[in-house]
Design a protein around this nucleic acid. Structure first.
Lengths: 328, 328
DNA sequence: CTGAAAGCGCTTACAG
DNA sequence: CTGAAAGCGCTTACAG
C-alpha cells in the first residue's frame, strides 16, 4: 500500500505538503502541486480513511437505521438519502432493526462507535430510553417518519392524509367503513392514522362497530387475516375498508377476491404508500403517495445542515397526494 | 470521548492490559479482567474503530456493490448477506451503480480506499478492465450473479432455468413464443437466457420470427414497449411471451390487458424473479424463484471463507424453482 | 501475568 | 510557500 510518506518521498517534499495539496488546505506552489498530483495519479494512491478519520474525528459516513431494509418504502428513502449524501461525499452505513425496537437503541450506539458523522433514524416507535440514547450520543441526528420532541424530524402528514382518505370514501357514498391499522406504539402509522379515521367518522355521525377495527403488522398476510376477522362477524358488514398500508390493503383484497366479493361494488379498499404493486393489482388500488424519496432527500439535507453547524432542531412536514384508482 | 487510556487509568493498569482484556488476547488475571470489564460497562466505552482499523488493517466492513439498490432482488440479496455477515460481526457498506458500468470499477476502488475487508459485487456486465480492477485491489472478493473467471462466483443457473421455462411453455402447447430480453453485455440475464430460449426453440423445430425477439432494460415500461413492438407487426402473432424478468413481464401484461388480449387464452406470459408482485397481479404470473436471499447467504459465506484464508476461487451454482401460476 | 515503547497513516498548529 | 513534530486511539512484539 502506498502511503502519504511514499508520495512525499517520490515528490521530494514533506508529507505535510502532500497533505496540503491533497486537501487544498494552505499554500502549495503550483509546480509542487502539479508534481504531487501526477504522482498520486500514477500510483493510484488513496489516503487511508481510518488514519484520516482517527486524526480528524470525521469519518465521512452517515448511519441509517431502518425498520426493514427490504421494503419499497425503505428503498425509496435510501435512494433519496443517498442522492443527497453521495453528492456531499458521504458514504452510507445501513442497519436493519427487523422491527425490533431494542435494536434501534443498540444500533445508535453501534453507529456512534463506528464514528459516523451523523444518523438518520426511521423509527417505528417512540420511548424515553430511545430519546435518551439520541440525547446521549450527541450526534447530528434526523428522525424520519416520526416526530421526536427536540429532534429534527421529517414527517408525513399522517393525520391529514388519513382524514382525506376517509372523507373521500364518505363522499363516494361509503358509509360503513372498516379499518385495518397497526399497533399504537407506532405514533405515526398506528396512532395518527387511526385517530384520523375515527374522528372523521365521528364528525360525519357514522358509527364504527368494534369488529370493524382490526390490527395488522404491516405484512400482506396480516391484511388478509384482518379482513377475514372483520367479515366473519355477521353483525354489520362494512362496504369499504381503509388499510393503513398498501401491503395490508393488498392482503385484504386477496381475501375479498377469494371469497367472491367484488371490489369496489361490494367492498371498496384503500391503502397508503403508493407501492408499485398497488398499480398492478386488480383492481388497481386507491392509495396515498407519500413521496418517500423526497422525504429521504429532505432528511439528508437536514442532516447536512446540522453537519454544517445549524444546530436548531427543525420539523419538516412532507406533502402527500391521493391517488384514486379502481378499488374505490 | 472515553478512550482506552481513560479506562486504563481508572483501572490502574496499562492500556496494554485493557486491550488484552477487551480482545481476549494474551493473559489477564481474572481479577483485573473483571475490574476492567465493569469499568467498561459503567462508562459505556467503545473502542475507536478507526484507531483499531488503522492499527490492525482490518475494518470489519464488507463492501457491497449493487446495480440497483431499490429492487426486490437487491433487498433479498442484502438480507441474505447481512444475516450471515452480521453474525460474524461485520458491517455492510452499500453502493449503488445505478446500472452504470464504469461505476462498478469506481466503487471497487472506493471501497478499497475505505479499507473494507472484502467485496461482494453483483455486476451487470463483464469486461477486461473490471476483471483487472478486481485483480488489482487484491481483496477477498465474491461475484454474485455473474461468473467471473478466476473469481469466486455465486451464480444462478440461468441457462437451465430458461430452458425449463421454454420447455414448459412448449409442453403446454404454445408453439409461437416471443421473447423480451436485455442487452447481451449482461452475460447472465442478457446472453444465457436468450441462448437457452433460442436453442430450446430450435431443438423443437419451432421457428422464431425476428420481430418476436425484443430487448428491454429491466423496467416495467420497457416490457410494455417490447410487447407493443412485437404485436404491432401483424405478420405472425405469438401465442406466448417469455420475458426474462418479472418487471418486464408485468409491463407486457399491462399492454396485453390494455389491448384486450386475454391472458393466457390469447397470449401466455412468463417472467423470472418471483417478485411479490408476480403473485398479486391478475392473472398471477408464472415465474422462476431464484432464491435470492439464499444466494446472498452463499456469497457472504464464501466471502467469510476467503477472509479466513481459504483462497481457492470457487464456483457455486444456486438452485431455482419454477412457479406455475395463472398467466400460462 | 503485566507494562513501556513503537508504530499504523494521517492532519495541524507552529516556526521559519 | 514549506517542514519538523506532535498526536489521534489503538495493538503487538519484546522484555520482565
Amino acid at each position: 500500500m502506498t502511503t502519504i510518506n511514499d508520495i512525499a518521498k517520490m515528490a521530494n517534499v514533506s508529507r505535510t505538503t502532500v497533505s496540503r495539496a491533497l486537501n487544498n488546505s494552505g499554500y502549495v506552489s503550483e509546480d509542487v502541486r502539479k508534481k504531487i498530483m501526477s504522482i498520486v495519479e500514477e500510483t493510484g494512491y488513496m489516503p487511508s480513511v481510518s488514519a484520516k478519520s482517527l486524526r480528524t474525528k470525521r469519518s465521512g459516513v452517515i448511519g441509517i437505521i431502518l425498520p426493514r431494509i427490504s421494503t419499497e418504502t425503505a428503498s425509496r428513502l435510501v435512494n433519496g438519502i443517498n442522492d443527497v449524501l453521495s453528492k456531499q461525499g458521504f458514504q452510507i452505513l445501513l442497519t436493519d432493526t427487523e422491527l425490533q425496537k431494542d435494536k434501534e437503541i443498540e444500533y445508535i450506539r453501534l453507529l456512534k462507535s463506528r464514528q459516523v458523522d451523523g444518523i438518520i433514524l426511521s423509527a417505528t416507535n417512540i420511548n424515553d430510553e430511545l430519546l435518551q440514547t439520541i440525547q446521549d450520543v450527541d450526534l447530528p441526528f434526523v428522525s424520519l417518519g416520526q416526530d421526536f420532541p427536540g429532534v429534527t424530524s421529517v414527517v408525513y402528514d399522517d393525520y391529514a392524509a388519513s382524514v382525506d382518505v376517509t372523507n373521500m370514501l364518505i363522499q363516494k357514498g361509503y358509509d360503513k367503513i372498516a379499518f385495518i391499522g397497526v399497533g399504537e406504539e407506532d405514533p405515526s402509522v398506528g396512532y395518527e392514522r387511526k385517530q384520523a379515521y375515527l374522528q372523521t367518522m365521528a364528525k360525519h355521525d357514522l358509527s364504527v362497530h368494534d369488529h370493524w377495527v382490526e390490527m395488522g403488522d404491516f405484512s400482506i398476510d396480516s391484511g388478509y387475516e384482518g379482513m377475514k376477522r372483520i367479515l366473519q362477524n355477521n353483525d354489520a358488514q362494512p362496504n369499504a375498508v381503509f388499510a393503513v398500508t398498501d401491503r395490508m390493503a393488498i392482503g385484504a383484497m386477496e381475501y375479498l377476491k377469494e371469497q367472491g366479493y367484488r371490489i369496489p361494488e361490494d367492498i371498496a379498499v384503500t391503502g397508503i404508500g403508493a407501492s408499485v404493486m398497488s398499480k398492478y393489482v386488480s383492481p388497481s388500488l386507491t392509495t396515498v403517495d407519500y413521496f418517500n424519496k423526497e422525504a429521504g432527500e429532505e432528511a439528508a439535507r437536514a442532516l447536512v445542515g446540522q453537519l454544517q453547524g445549524k444546530n436548531t432542531s427543525k420539523k419538516i412536514k412532507n406533502s402527500y397526494r391521493l391517488i384514486l384508482r379502481d378499488s374505490v
